[in-house]
């Protein structure tokens, strides 16, 4: 059966059909912006190389911590700079308003976008883990690789939650971009010293339980499961709490339109 305009008659859209259409479009956008995506791979690789060759690299916690810090940086870059910029820009253009007048539930629009970001983070993590094997000679058991990638997904939730809160509460594209860069200091850079007392134990404690610190601790533990300690469990709990709090804020108060 077809309509008079030659278009096959529509059936009520199914949830799976809606998600498939959104995911296909969002993945296409992500792949088409491959150069930007590849650029987000570069900083974690540079940090990994820098930490492995620097004299003080070992003071931050050793090879596994260096890999964890590189992964943390990569995840945060994609979430806080890449994701927020694309959402803020599309909102400014009115892309979300157009999607919202379709039968697609609003949560599917966000889930699709977030899923594509998680896929990007997993791809970045695989690249960093391969580089770690080459540069730092850090190789893991298959189970540790799987656990690390599973924890990458949880860590993605932490920083995507932060990004969601940022872009959810602030409408202006310029402000979102500026605050995204500024938030790197408390969220990520601070976490670099969570395994080092070079700035004293108080700073180390603050650093360890910052979002970046918790994520780095969790990833270190996942890469070396035999050394999974109580601190790793606390880091896991902190990461879950950060995800829930930031994502909750970002979803509850997300502003779909700039008007």
């Amino acid at each position: 059966m077809s309509t008079q305009s030659g278009v096959p008659a529509s059936r009520p859209p199914t949830l799976s059909g809606i998600l498939r259409a959104l995911l296909e479009a969002d993945l296409t956008v992500q792949l088409r912006n491959g150069r930007a995506l590849l650029l987000t791979f570069f900083p974690p690789l540079a940090v990994l190389y820098g930490l492995s060759t620097a004299k003080r690299g070992a003071q931050l916690g050793g090879p596994i911590v260096n890999v964890a810090l590189a992964l943390t940086l990569g995840i945060a870059l994609i979430a806080i700079l890449g994701y927020t910029a694309s959402v803020a820009s599309d909102r400014e253009l009115g892309v979300f308003q157009r999607l919202r007048v379709t039968p697609a539930p609003t949560w599917t629009i966000m889930v699709s976008r977030l899923s594509v970001q998680v896929v990007s983070m997993l791809a970045m993590s695989v690249v960093v883990l391969v580089a770690a094997a080459v540069i730092e000679k850090v190789t893991l058991d298959p189970a540790a690789y799987l656990l690390t990638l599973a924890m990458v997904i949880l860590c993605s939730a932490v920083f995507l939650g932060v990004g969601q809160a940022l872009v959810g509460l602030i409408k202006s594209v310029d402000t979102v971009n500026a605050l995204g860069r500024l938030s790197f200091l408390p969220l990520v850079a601070l976490g670099l010293f969570g395994h080092s007392d070079v700035f004293g134990t108080t700073f180390e404690t603050i650093s360890r339980w910052s979002p970046g610190g918790a994520v780095a601790t969790l990833l270190s533990g996942a890469m070396h499961p035999v050394a999974w300690t109580a601190d790793t469990w606390w880091a896991l709990l902190a990461s879950v709490l950060y995800s829930i709090i930031f994502a909750g804020i970002g979803i509850r108060w997300f502003q779909w339109s700039t008007r």
Binding site: S10, R11, P13, I18, A21, T102, P103
Partner: peptide, 8 residues
């Protein structure tokens, strides 16, 4: 994309 969203 929009065809998919409307089940067409």
């Amino acid at each position: 994309l929009y065809a998919g969203l409307y089940g067409v």
